[in-house]
Computed example of a mutant assay.
Amino acid sequence: MLKVKDLTIEPLFREVNFCVPRGEIVTLMGPSGSGKSTLFAWMVGALSDDFQAQGELWLDERRCDRLPVESRGLGILFQDALLFDHFTVGQNLLLALPERIVGRARRDAVEQALSSAGLKNHYASDPATLSGGERARVSLLRALLAEPQALLLDEPFGRLDKTLRATFRTWVFDVVRARGIPVILVTHDEEDIPPNGEVIAISRWQ
């Protein structure tokens, strides 16, 4: 379970609390500037010095907000794919693999991931040749190959057209549920909210 407890980020919001069970998706919604992306920055340990935060972040029985960035176990997916265009698709994904995976097993893991996403023949592809939907899938695969204990989705569907958005959204939700990963989704589009999913409203400190 991923839990945010008694989180106040001055001067944005105060006393935010929520829990995300494994395999569930909780949606954060609120007007622009209310602090949704800043909340994510705090969670991953990259909060700007412009803000002051008090609160706790827990993953199961482990408190994470005091840990170094690399030890928190959080993956994040943005609206932009943020692939390295001077690397191949496969090289982009190799960067995410844990160091304990060595030798041929590294390439095998990447090829298996690409195949699972319908990108079987794209290991050596130039990212610049991919469609928007393909780049989005590679970006998610890179986040998942790092074996995150929880995943933060910061408007990851925003740059996709309506049809592709629906297809990619369904695929993402199916993948994270199958893996039992707690997920927080930030979006402005109510169509992105999973059926019967919990919605947390974030509003600026008045």
Rank of each mutant, 00 (worst) to 15 (best):
K3M: 11
V4T: 07
K5Q: 15
T8E: 04
I9R: 04
I9Y: 10
E15R: 14
E15T: 12
V16H: 02
N17C: 12
C19S: 15
V20T: 05
G23W: 01
E24W: 00
I25K: 01
V26W: 03
M29Q: 10
G30M: 08
G33Y: 07
S37W: 03
L39Y: 00
F40N: 08
F40R: 05
M43L: 11
A53N: 03
Q54D: 11
D60H: 04
R62K: 11
P68N: 10
V69E: 10
R72A: 04
G73L: 02
G73W: 09
G75W: 00
I76C: 06
F78L: 12
L82I: 07
F84A: 14
H86Q: 14
F87L: 15
F87H: 13
F87W: 05
T88C: 07
L94S: 06
L95E: 13
L97E: 08
I101D: 12
V102E: 15
R104D: 15
R104S: 14
R107V: 15
A109T: 13
V110W: 01
E111I: 07
Q112S: 13
G118K: 09
G118R: 05
H122M: 12
Y123V: 05
P127A: 05
L130R: 02
S131N: 08
A136V: 06
R137Y: 00
R137K: 13
R137V: 08
S139K: 01
L140M: 13
A143T: 11
L145W: 03
Q149Y: 02
L152A: 08
E155S: 09
F157H: 06
G158C: 10
L160V: 12
D161E: 14
D161H: 03
D161I: 02
D161N: 13
T163N: 14
R165F: 00
A166C: 02
T167F: 09
V172N: 03
F173K: 02
F173Q: 13
D174S: 14
D174K: 15
V175D: 07
V176I: 06
G180Y: 06
P182W: 01
H188L: 11
E190Q: 12
E191F: 01
E198C: 08
A201R: 13
I202S: 06
I202N: 08
R204H: 11
W205E: 13
Q206W: 01
